[in-house]
Amino acid sequence: MTVRVLPYGESALLVEPDDAEGVLALAGAARQLAGVTEVVPAARTVLLVLDPGVDVGEVRRRLLELVVGPAAHADRAEVVLDVVYDGPDLATTAAEVGLDPDGLVRAHISAAHTVAFCGFVPGFAYCRGLPERVQVPRLREPRTRVPAGSVAIAGEFSGVYPRASPGGWRLLGRTDAVLWDLGREPPALLSPGTPVRFRAVDR
């Protein structure tokens, strides 16, 4: 894997791997570097926050020398999310990709999802693994309010809205899972690298 390393202020570096699929592997390897205090993966970049006063040039040199293997998730327990697939966008999205609603549900639940990164609101995880044939863009006009627990897709990602908020993703269903709980340690149910399986239920 080759990477591009860019300065990000006085004590941080922004790293761009040549392959977006390598973001999690790069993030895992970068956590082992001395002087790195925080690693924040995103869709196609990894932000490294460094100790104040650390030699940024030295960290950059060691980054470029890193041998990054495949991302290892064996130590992460799979999170299973039970979903009632009755979302308002299920039928129209299925038709758009040439499937019936049941076909879209089967495609969604059969995929191997992995949390790529988190953002937007606390607890919102962007899960990679959605089959290319069912990838669709966001809605042209976002909703002003999406209910908490809504299971949705947009582009290459699946996600679950942790709380009611505006949003433009396609709503396929809903889950009772609590994605963000300040009384839990850690508060987020899903974190980068976590395998996720969506399971269809009736209720």
Rank of each mutant, 00 (worst) to 15 (best):
F117W: 03
R138W: 08
A77G: 08
D86C: 07
F120Y: 06
A95V: 10
P137N: 07
A72Q: 12
V83R: 02
A111I: 05
I109N: 05
L130M: 08
R106K: 06
G123A: 04
E141D: 05
I153F: 08
D102W: 15
L139R: 15
V79S: 05
I109A: 10
A72T: 12
P122G: 08
L130T: 12
P142Y: 09
G98N: 02
D102F: 03
R106I: 02
S150G: 06
T114G: 01
R145I: 06
E96K: 12
R128P: 00
Y126G: 05
V134W: 00
V97C: 06
G69N: 12
E96N: 07
I153A: 10
A148K: 11
I153T: 14
I109V: 15
A71N: 13
F124H: 06
V134M: 00
Y126N: 11
Y85A: 08
V146R: 01
R128E: 14
R76M: 10
A107Q: 11
F117G: 02
T114K: 06
A152S: 10
Y126L: 08
P101A: 07
V84W: 08
P101R: 07
G98T: 02
I109L: 03
R145E: 15
R140T: 13
D89N: 08
P147Q: 03
T144D: 07
V83L: 14
D100Y: 07
A148E: 00
L90K: 01
A152T: 02
R140A: 15
P101L: 14
P137H: 02
E141I: 03
L81T: 09
A77R: 15
A72Y: 10
V121E: 13
L81Q: 12
L90F: 04
A107K: 10
V84E: 15
A77K: 11
R143N: 05
I109Q: 07
A148C: 11
R143E: 04
G98F: 01
D86G: 13
G103Y: 05
A112S: 13
R140N: 05
A152F: 05
F124N: 01
D82Y: 14
H113I: 06
L139S: 03
E78I: 07
P147S: 12
D89C: 04
A112H: 07
V146A: 00
G149I: 00
I109Y: 03
A148R: 08
E78L: 11
D102T: 11
E96C: 03
H113L: 13
I109K: 06
A72W: 14
A95F: 05
V84L: 14
H73R: 13
P142N: 08
D102Y: 05
V97E: 07
V151Y: 04
A116C: 00
V121Q: 15
D82E: 15
R106G: 04
G103Q: 00
G87I: 07
G87R: 11
D82I: 09
V97A: 06
A71C: 13
A91L: 09
V83S: 14
D102N: 13
A107L: 10
L139E: 02
A116F: 00
A152M: 07
E96W: 01
